[in-house]
């Protein structure tokens, strides 16, 4: 198939009833009925779109849009409440010297720090996102994953980033993955659910497409590429395949699922390439923090430096930005 044309009939299957018991066979028929990914084609398309040149005023607008899409992330074993509070202050006002810089979309932390982040961000308009479900491996009993999720939501997380059970997915037990997403979605209550596919562990582009459809059908509000703990993380071809899935789902059902590449996006150039990809593959309807996010930590400083470069004309240096 071409990468831009909507896939033929098989790729827009009738939505499965979300609450009915779905058999493994039905899911298998659905996912393996998807058209295969043309590996060379998708890489060439991603590489081609990556050469687009975004300059001057368009670049300035793209940088501000990218800043407003950042999920500012800290997911380290060494995270402290102090570090999370500092990050929250930066999320609300990324550049203290320039009030025209927009706030980021959300701060992403481990569940035990969700309360700290929620307190620091109260009233700011910046959401708290929390990873849950035994992030990053996802290897825990379902009860533990659900408890993890409920606790994060109770502590103020408006968005939950869950990981799928890659072991079950690769073993072909799609039903287990589907049921877990449904259960976590229910535990989320009002919170948005982002489903992390961990594409670096899925081995093939076909699996990325299948996992995307599986997560979308199970009710994900966002599909996210990676935990950031596995390399390769968010590559352009993978993001492209996921954008195609949400585009096709929107065309078939009218529901707009978001996409969040995360991990390995460090430079303004990477961010702008992602925005070009969103516009060209999914369409301008996704160029909004409600439907596209960039999971990153060091990216924000580079965006701020490029913003300074555009506004002052001289090259900035990292000495003038926070270490986080």
């Amino acid at each position: 198939m071409t990468d831009t044309a909507p896939p033929p009939g098989a790729a827009a299957p009738s939505p499965l009833p979300p609450d009915a018991a779905v058999s493994n066979a039905a899911l298998r028929a659905l996912l393996h009925g998807l058209p295969g990914v043309d590996e060379v084609g998708v890489q060439a398309r991603a590489a081609d779109l990556a050469t687009r040149s975004v300059k001057t005023t368009a670049k300035a607008r793209a940088i501000d849009l990218a800043i407003s899409m950042v999920d500012l992330t800290t997911l380290e074993g060494a995270d402290t409440p102090g570090k999370v509070r500092a990050l929250c202050a930066k999320a609300v006002r990324p550049d203290p010297a320039d009030r025209a810089v927009p706030s980021v979309a959300a701060v992403c932390v481990y569940p035990d720090l969700a309360r700290t982040a929620a307190d620091a961000l109260a009233g700011s308009g910046v959401a708290v996102a929390s990873v849950a479900t035994a992030f990053p491996s996802g290897r825990a009993p379902l009860e533990a994953k659900l408890a993890d999720t409920r606790r994060a939501v109770a502590d103020g997380a408006a968005e939950i980033d869950m990981v799928i059970d890659r072991g079950a997915f690769l073993a072909g037990d799609y039903r287990a993955v589907y049921d877990q997403i449904l259960a976590v979605k229910e535990a989320c209550g009002p919170a948005h659910l982002k489903v992390i596919l961990e594409t670096g562990e899925l081995a093939t582009y076909d699996n990325v497409r299948r996992a995307s459809w599986l997560a979308i059908h199970a009710g994900a509000d966002f599909i996210k590429t990676s935990t950031g703990k596995v390399a390769p993380a968010a590559t352009l071809p993978v993001t492209l395949i996921m954008l195609e899935a949400v585009r096709d789902h929107h065309a078939a059902t009218g529901r707009r699922v978001g996409v969040k590449p995360a991990g390995g996006i460090r430079t303004t150039k990477d961010a702008l390439r992602n925005l070009v990809l969103v516009n060209e593959v999914a369409g301008p309807g996704w160029l909004d923090p409600a439907h596209f996010r960039l999971g990153a930590s060091s990216l924000l400083n580079d965006l701020l430096m490029q913003r300074t470069r555009l506004s002052t004309g001289s090259y900035p240096g990292p000495d003038y930005y926070t270490l986080d």
Partner: peptide
């Protein structure tokens, strides 16, 4: 001029 104004120099 670009090197003189560069903040990382």
């Amino acid at each position: 001029p670009h090197l003189a104004a560069h903040a990382d120099v």
